[in-house]
Design a protein around this nucleic acid. Structure first.
Length: 552
RNA sequence: GCCCCUGUAGCUCAGGGGAUAGAGCACCGGCCUCCGGAGCCGGGUGCGAGGGUUCAAGUCCCUCCAGGGGCGCCA
């Protein structure tokens, strides 16, 4: 049982006792919450129950605190309980329990800190960029967020599936196909103009050249429409290949690559549309087919089938979500979208209602914009303009680990500037390296111990008594709370902050406590502590999708 | 005009209604007979403005101001 629960229960019992003895006159009890004090001298946990009660029962908070304290049963692994003005009850975890955690961490390894928050199946869909060009930094943010969330949710007990939705059926593809065909013809010396709304990026020329190398002028000899389709198909494969490589470099892997086209081929699109029609959520006017989302609380209706008979992105997204919830039966689904898709949220919520699925089962995380800059100069990242800095280029400049750390360090709600100049310049004084350095340092100590032939597996952790040692343990132990916080709020930005904290207390411990010394027994116990710290630090880095280097 | 996000230290950002609001960077001082100095220790008049709720507000509610994004038969 967690300390939170244990303490809340104990407080409740104490309150009952105090009431029975007439020390406190009963009233409506507020919910008992346990807090974590900001200052270490206020213990590990605290309750402000006396403050909350003071008004309802008309007593002074400190008196209530005393009355509760007198009736508090002894609580396992809590060694000190005291009352502090203006009316807090503070609890301190026993040293014995803390030391025991070091043994447990060494024994359980990287699963240390995992919790059983929930066992629901959850699908996380992210990135899902159109297969028409390379990833830019904004996509990187979503990719890092999604993959980290997946790691953390797994650690919290969820059954997680990560997914990339390939938009291989939309109208954007046509522009991409024709742009590529035009570039292909240009490569072969023909006059060809890029279509309006075409893709002007230089990467298109590279693709065209590669196609020319393999297929020569084969596509000039066939009917243009046919050629466009075939070349387009090849182009998509090439883009997807690059996307996968880039994502892999960033440490992002997907369990499922889901094709939009498949929804049309296996009839699920039609099935979903029929269902919407039967539910009277579909109207026809102005020669188009509309989803009547305004009847479900959205501010306006949205087109499903255009005048020209082609379905919109929105229409297939409905079928896609029907597939997620009804066909594949995920308990909950998390979609991670960029800020430019924000307007799509209310529509999807309306869709959930239309499909009679509880909208709470769908969480949509909107990541705010990333502006890329070099010093004062803002770098545009538009795919069509052709002037773009890709995610790959950024990774090549600052490294995948630093990329991930920077993206993770800000909450999805805040927009961010990614300053390449600064990221490179500061690379030596970067929190990324600070954290990784702590890990490398630990590995070096452990290697040292190994070379000296010290076996610390039976180290006696009860010898750990100094403040730096205990502070380190206290911080290590917090990992499970961090995992729960991140999993509950879906906010991975707590991880980098935690990682820095952990690195700081380790460095501080290292400075103050010599690990390998003449005192054999103490050496063994401290080595065990160092090993435990290594496990927790590595785990934190791995949750963030970063490497935990043994040397740097 | 309507909707979403944001305003906290010089800069980039954390802060699950609670105790004296914290980190990193930058800046200024210290610390190497010793396991990695990419380190440690010290240095701070800051919550956009104004109301409200509460014993308690950076946190919740309202108004205003400022910045970003969205309001296509694009995705």
């Amino acid at each position: 049982m967690s300390f939170h629960k244990k303490l809340a229960t104990a407080l409740e019992q104490a309150l009952e006792q105090a009431q029975q003895k007439g020390l406190i006159v009963t009233a409506n009890l507020p919910e008992i919450t346990i807090e974590r004090p900001a200052k270490p001298e206020n213990g590990d946990y605290a309750s402000s129950l006396p403050l909350k009660l003071a008004r309802v029962i008309g007593m002074r908070p400190m008196e209530i605190a005393d009355a509760i304290l007198k009736n508090l049963p002894s609580i396992e692994n809590i060694e000190k309980i005291d009352v502090a003005p203006p009316g807090f009850i503070n609890f301190t975890i026993s040293r014995k329990w803390l030391c025991g955690q070091v043994d447990i961490a060494c024994k359980t390894g990287e699963s240390y800190g995992d919790t059983d928050l929930d066992h629901k199946s959850v699908q996380i869909e992210f990135v899902s960029v159109n297969p028409t060009g390379p990833l830019h930094v904004g996509h990187g943010r979503g990719a890092v967020l999604g993959s980290t969330l997946a790691n953390v949710l797994r650690s919290a007990g969820y059954r997680v599936s990560t997914e990339y939705y390939i938009n291989d059926a939309g109208s954007q593809l046509d522009a991409f196909y024709r742009s590529l065909f035009a570039r292909y013809r240009q490569c072969l010396g023909e006059e060809a103009e890029l279509p309006e709304n075409g893709y002007h990026g230089n990467y298109m020329i590279d693709f065209a050249r590669q196609i020319v190398e393999v297929h020569k002028d084969k596509y000039l000899k066939m009917p243009p429409d046919e050629a466009v389709q075939e070349i387009g198909g090849i182009g998509i494969q090439m883009v997807m290949q690059k996307l996968k490589e880039d994502l892999e470099k960033l440490g992002v892997k997907f369990d499922v690559w889901f094709s939009e086209l498949s929804l049309f081929q296996n009839g699920q699109f039609d099935k979903t549309m029929t269902m919407l029609r039967e539910g009277s959520f579909v109207t026809e006017r102005e020669n188009a087919v509309w989803f009547a989302s305004s009847t479900l609380g959205d501010d306006r209706d949205n087109v499903l089938i255009r005048t020209d008979g082609t379905p919109t992105y929105f229409a297939s997204d409905i079928a896609y979500h029907y597939n997620k919830f009804v066909e594949r039966k995920f308990d909950t689904v998390i979609d991670i979208w960029g800020a430019d898709h924000q307007g799509h949220v209310s529509r999807m919520k309306a869709v959930m209602n239309a499909m009679e699925i509880n909208p709470d089962r769908l969480t949509i995380i909107i990541t705010q914009l990333v502006t890329l800059r070099r010093g004062q100069e803002i770098v545009r990242v538009s795919k069509r303009s052709g002037d773009l800095i890709t995610l790959r280029e950024v990774m090549d400049e600052v490294g995948a680990d630093a990329c991930r750390f920077v993206f993770l360090s800000r909450s999805a709600d805040s927009q961010m500037d990614f300053d390449l100049e600064l990221a490179i310049k500061q690379s030596a004084d970067n929190p990324v390296y600070y954290v990784q350095y702590a890990h490398a340092r630990i590995c070096s100590i452990l290697k040292n111990a190994l070379e000296k032939g010290i076996d610390f597996s039976k180290g006696d952790t009860s010898l750990l008594k100094l403040e730096p040692e205990l502070t380190l343990i206290r911080n290590m132990v917090k990992i499970s709370e961090v995992i729960e916080t991140v999993a509950t709020g879906l906010e991975p930005h707590h991880l980098p902050f935690y990682a820095q904290e952990l690195a700081t207390v380790f460095h501080s411990f290292y400075k103050q406590c010599r690990v390998i010394s003449d005192d054999d027994a103490l050496t063994r116990s401290r080595l065990k502590l160092v090993k435990a710290a290594q496990i927790v630090l590595a785990k934190t880095l791995h949750l963030m999708g970063m490497t935990a280097p043994e040397s740097m």
